[in-house]
Structures are given as C-alpha cells and as structure tokens.
Design a protein around this nucleic acid. Structure first.
Lengths: 231, 231
DNA sequence: GTAGATATTGACAATCATGTCAGTATAACA
DNA sequence: TGTTATACTGACATGATTGTCAATATCTAC
C-alpha cells in the first residue's frame, strides 16, 4: 500500500484508471477572504501577534499558504485587512449602541457597558492594542472620528437635560472628557482588567460591580452639573 | 590601501609589524547586561516588539550578537529580563510616589498624575502592554500585589479623613474601584491617549486638563462620601 | 460543450533570525 | 609573570517564514 500508488503506476494509468477525482474546493474570493480573516483573528486572539503565520492560518482554513497570498498580496496585506475589518465591526457596534433596536437611545449606563463589552472580546482588544503598538493607525480610517461622534451625541442629550432642569449648559469639553475617560478605561480594562481583578481578588460579579460603579460615577458627575443647584 | 592589509601580509608580519592592538572592549557582566537592556528597551519603544532583534541590538551596543546570548542565554531570556527590569522600575516609581522625598504622602491628585506620568513613557507602556498581549505576566512577579498595596495605603487615608469628619467609614471596595479605574485609565491613556486626544483636537494643555479633570472627578467622589452629609 | 477567468496547489527560492562552537582577548589574581 | 576565568568574536548551522512561479482544477458565460 505504501508505494504502490505513486511509484508503480505510469502517467497514462493515472489518467485513465487510478486517479481519483481531485475534488479541489473552490470558494468565491469573498468567501475565501472571510474564512482566512476569521482564522487569522482567532489566532491573534488565542496566541497573540506572533500567532499570525501564513502556514498555520492556511492549515486552519484547509488551504495552502500561497492561496492566502493570492487573496491578500502579502502577510502585511492580510494584517491590514484584518485591522480594517475589526475596526469597522467595532465602529458598527459602537454606533449601534447609541440607538437600540427600537430607535430609542440607550441610556448612559448601558452605553458604557457596551463599550466595555465590545472591547472585552479578547480578539478585538488584542487587535486594537497591537495596532497601536505597531503604529498601524493608518488602516483604521473607519474609526477615525468615532469618539468625537459619540461624544457629540451624548453632549446633545446633556444639553437637553440641562435645559429641562433650567441648569447651566454643560461644557462641551466636560462631555468630551467623559467620553475619553470611558474609552481609556475600557481599553485599559480590556488589557489589564483581568489581571487587576485577579490581583484584587475580584470574581466575575466583582468585575460587573466595577463597571456599574464606574457608570454610576459618571452619572453622578453629570447630574451634579446638569441639574439645577442652589449655588 | 584596500587589499594591502589583509591579503599581502603574512601571519608573522601581522604579529610583529602591522597588527594594531585588538583593543577589544571588555565590560563587567553587569555593565554589559545593562547596556544591552537599555538598547533593547529603546528599540521596543521606537519600533515595537519586532524591533527586538539580536543583531540590531548588538549593533546599537557595539558588540556581536552572540555576546547577547552569552549574557541572556536566549532571546527569550533577554525579553524576560527586560520585562523584569521595567516592571521593577515601574513598581519603584509607584511606591515612591506614595511618599515624596520629605516623607510626606502625596495627595491624591499628585498620585494620579504620577501614575499617568509613569506610564506615559513610551517604552514602559509599550512593554507592559506587550507583556499582556503575549501572556508573559509570569516574569512580572515584582509588581504582583502592587495595586492592592497602593489601594490599601489610600484607603487608610480615607478612613482617617472620614473619622475626622464624623462621616461613615468608606467602603473598602469603593477605594479599590478608584484604584482600578485609575490604573485602567492610565493604561488606556498610555496606549490610545495620544490618538484620542488628536482626534478630539486636544493639544498638550488639553491633555493636562484631562488629567486634572479626572483627578477632580475622583476627589469629588471621595469627598461626597467621606464628609459628613445631612442624609 | 468550449473558452476564459481565476482560485488553488506543490515545489522551490530567498531571506532572515536564533543559536552553536571553537577560539581569542582581557581582566583579576597568584 | 604566569594562570585562570570569562567576556567576546567570526563563521557557520539550523530552522522558520514569506514570497514566487508554473501548472492545474473549477466555475461561469457563451
């Protein structure tokens, strides 16, 4: 059985008798790119940046590694495409969180929760921070003015709320700082949160409590300014 | 001049006439290790993780790359040593910030500022986040219970403050959350802060304002709880 | 069916980084 | 001054990974 098939049989025999149908799978370019990106993303999430190796990813998908190069030009092209896709997904999640499915706007606490949630996915956090570490901001054009956009949306709510309470109009920068703090904190949480929580002896509930606590902190801050006060 | 020295002269001649003293630099093991770590740190800061290549670092120091292997066993050994050193430095900075040079304790705002400051150094932030991204927490034993330690120090101050004001004793978890938030925010700031600030159109002063704003936010929160209130 | 486009492959090339080794130079010490 | 320990080097081995190329299989359109 060992050598029979390949050494004994002549080319003609191969063509006529022995040769089983090659059954090569052929996907659409789009489908192939998707599968490759999925595999790359998973590798990045589980093994970190060095886990993105063409051979390994090819094996995961069940193709040969030149196929990846065919679809993405180079390894760098693959990385760029992965960053672009993840950034876009993240952006969609964030913008989606601004309005729930009924078109209602989420309240601040839920919004904060969704920021943490979107980043807590291991792959996303790792990809974004890797992107920062390697100076690849360029390809993330899709999330360019994301924070400003969100900040503006929140600010207009605050202004309304303040008007309703006959309170002084909140400072735009104050809102921007709230957004920045949330972004920073969620990002930091995604990377060292687990470590810090473990060190502090916090279980899963503790982590949830922390997020609630943070949302509450910001809520109190906003209330303090946007509701009328005697001073 | 081109070939004269090396091709025409026989070994004996080399030994007697032409040979200039080899003047090989020989440092103490400690000194050599320090120089190598310095170079590696600089590479990491400017070029990211992939910048740590034995040949490049060797060239920076002015030695051959096997010399690095001689001192650190392997590339991985170098990375571990670098992580260990940076973690230890970070820890020292943090613990030092708890008490200024007069033995006085820094107040909260200054403490927060120093956390951000310590991490804003590009090398430190990059190294620590790279450490997280690649699951190398192990070698950072020196900063094991750092946050807990700091949190405890701050908490004891809060308790005193509350006693002084005849306010209810603050919750230990509340203080822990303040510490966690600060750590998360400083960490996130170190990685995406520059990007966010740019997007928001903040200049350097704006960044400083943000940190002050954050310190103020926490201060207000603590005051709100630790000073006696009518409710 | 035939033809053209292209997704896919195996084999190979080229580069590059880590690590090994035997030998050399230098400092410390007797 | 001679001996020893070891920091250091050049040349080479090794292995891994990206990238190239010609050939092949499969799909779509005519």
């Amino acid at each position: 059985m060992s050598t029979a098939e390949k050494t004994e049989i002549l080319p003609t025999d191969i063509a006529t008798e022995t040769r089983q149908a090659p059954k090569r799978v052929r996907r659409s370019a789009e489908e192939a790119r998707r599968l490759i990106l999925d595999a790359a993303e998973k590798r990045l999430a589980t093994q970190g940046p060095e886990g993105i190796r063409l051979q390994d990813i090819a094996r995961d998908v069940g193709i040969s590694h030149p196929a990846i190069l065919h679809h993405f030009e180079s390894r760098e092209g693959l990385v760029r495409a992965l960053i672009a896709r993840t950034s876009a997904q993240f952006r969609d999640k964030m913008l989606g969180a601004l309005q729930d499915r009924n078109g209602h706007q989420l309240e601040a606490g839920e919004l904060i929760e969704s920021v943490f949630e979107a980043l807590s996915d291991r792959g996303t956090a790792r990809l974004l921070s890797w992107m920062m570490l390697t100076d690849r901001l360029t390809e993330a054009t899709s999330s360019r003015a994301l924070m400003t956009e969100i900040s503006n949306a929140i600010h207009s709510r605050r202004v309304k709320e303040a008007e309703k309470n006959a309170a002084p109009t909140p400072d735009r920068e104050d809102t921007m700082f709230m957004a920045m703090l949330t972004a920073n904190a969620a990002f930091g949480d995604a990377i060292i949160g687990r470590h810090l929580a473990e060190e502090a002896g916090l279980d899963h509930d503790g982590i949830i409590r922390f997020r609630r606590w943070f949302a509450q902190l910001l809520a109190e801050h906003a209330e303090h300014h946007d509701h009328q006060r005697k001073d």
